[in-house]
Design a protein around this nucleic acid. Structure first.
Ligand SMILES: [Mn+2]
Ligand SMILES: [Mn+2]
Ligand SMILES: [Zn+2]
Ligand SMILES: [Zn+2]
Lengths: 138, 138
DNA sequence: CCAAAGATTGGACTTTGTCTAATTCCGGAA
DNA sequence: TTCCGGAATTAGACAAAGTCCAATCTTTGG
């Protein structure tokens, strides 16, 4: 959705703005995440980050993804019981999930409207509403 | 939602109607699933099934859940990246998910409506629309 | 009641993710 | 610049969910 790729200083500023110290590894991971508009799993991120030449460990990839998620830089997408996908788009939006190919596509929150949300028990708040449209060929 | 528990012959008929041979283990598992209206994970089902006295293996529980799912007897609920929950309610409906406690509650499809679903690429069909309302205390 | 087809099983294996303790890095103060 | 203390990284062990396999046991129709 966003064509412009972040420059190194922009990535540093982005992390700092979210209270994340910009280490080399975190910048590599941020580069992979924000440089494309895809929904990637941890192990794809690990591969991509180490593709060029860098050395980033599995533990750091998981640490960093959890940190980015906690700080609101990215969002988890739970559609496949086998692995979590990470979404650089934190705007409210929903997903089209191709159950054959595993492909995940965004659906803007503007186009999709939900009505009839039940009122919550007192003392409860909505953390988010996730809509997954599962599609299939044929 | 449903108070009546199935009798043994009813469970046998139910399985047969779905093309599932009613073995002892499958009936035990069906009993656990259809005897309550909860969303259970495989390992809870394994525990419940073996609670009384029976001997059912982990492999059989997984085999059976996958079989029941393929034959449309139950449905998977993907809300927690750590494990799949199995839902004896195959009617279209949605879920309220308490992210603190892990509790899953049904929301009838009648009360919740989605509008603005994008039209799919040609040759694609919708397999289902899952709405998950994630809630939290406070 | 028999035999073939189908189901079950223990245990090895895979995958995703977490944990730990040792090492390395970073950023601010001087 | 250099130095220091806290923060980050790492290898590898560990854990949990789920699959696979080959040997054994059930089911079922004739
Ligand atoms: Mn997680
Ligand atoms: Mn599965
Ligand atoms: Zn998305
Ligand atoms: Zn349900």
């Amino acid at each position: 959705m966003k064509a412009t790729s972040y420059s190194r200083p922009e990535l540093i500023a982005l992390l700092r703005r979210h209270g994340v110290a910009p280490t080399h590894q975190r910048l590599e991971i941020a580069h992979v995440l924000f440089g494309r508009c895809e929904h990637l799993a941890a192990d794809q991120i690990l591969t991509l980050v180490n593709e060029r030449h860098a050395e980033t460990s599995k533990a750091t990839v998981y640490n960093t993804l959890n940190l980015f998620r906690d700080r609101g830089l990215i969002r988890e997408v739970i559609v496949d019981p086998k692995r979590v996908f990470y979404d650089p788009n934190t705007q409210p939006h929903h997903h089209l999930y191709n159950i054959d190919t595993g492909e995940i596509t965004d659906i803007g929150a503007e186009v999709l409207a939900v009505s009839g949300l039940p009122e919550l028990p007192p003392g409860m708040v909505t953390e988010g509403v996730d809509i997954i449209v599962r599609i299939r060929a044929l």
